[in-house]
Amino acid sequence: MAALARLTDPLSDLFWRRPRVLLVLLLAPPLLWLVVVYIGSLAALLVQSFFSIDEFTGLIKHEFTLKTYAELFRPANFDIVIRTTVMAAAVTIAAAIISFPIAYYAARYARGRMKAFFYLAVMLPLWSSYLVKVYAWKLILAKEGILTWAVDGIGASAVLNAILALPVIGGNSLSVSYIGTFLVFLYVWLPYMILPLQASLERVPQNLLEASDDLGASRRQTLRHVILPMAMPGMIAGSIFTFSLTLGDYIIPQIVGSSRNFIGQAVYAHQGTAGNIPLAAAFAVVPIVIMGFYLWVAKRKGAFDAL
């Protein structure tokens, strides 16, 4: 013990007299790791997106060009960007609508054990395996699966067939249509919307609602003019997750969906079999730019106070 103290005392004194030394020692390992492994990788990615591929040899030309970015605007590639963005927006809006009652009930009415129940009921699906959740939906949406069975059971198969017959969003069965892709995205990212929304709703003071009531507002008016504006930062915080996660996912549309590509699939295909790393890198920059813009707007609306 004494020997140990002889060793640690001077160090301890040093840290006390020069707190900066300790700070640097604490920060150095994690920062080195993140900067070398992560920022280094992002930089490598960014650099590659400014290279191009030689059309004849298929080799990467290591010189600066914007040609690869120009390729993003070719109709086939630009369609992918638009399709992914529209899907991300649709998923985000639907998630906000479905989350609201859950978050509102959990924040305003659930107390004690009920509150813990709601918390775990959102947390367990959030943390259960992503692939298992996608797999579950493959089971649900399969032609011989439970959804078709349930729809037949209530005699609504004509409705389902009519929906599947719709152009663009329909398909042979739900598991190979945009509707299917949309449902799986919605399911998998829903908890990411509920949690920040609930956090912002918890912060609506009770006396504000009473004041609104005293001033003669109906329930609907209170919701529209008091609660919704105060829930907005939480909703935007949640939408950052749902939007960003949908933009970057390549597994869900590959397993449940039509054969038309999303950004993530394009990145995966170009870096893998096609061997066009520059184009893959340029595609990967698209979600970064969209999210950068999105975050900038969100920050101006004060969404980060709710995270």
């Binding site: 992002l42 960003s244 990967a284």
Partner: peptide, 27 residues
């Protein structure tokens, strides 16, 4: 900046983290 740096790997879509690491390992 430090807090942002820590959160970044999970805030950006996984595919970006993935392809960034892959191209760095390749290089």
């Amino acid at each position: 900046t430090v807090s942002l740096l820590v959160i970044l790997p999970i805030a950006l879509p996984g595919i970006i983290t993935g392809i960034a690491l892959r191209s760095a390992f390749n290089l």
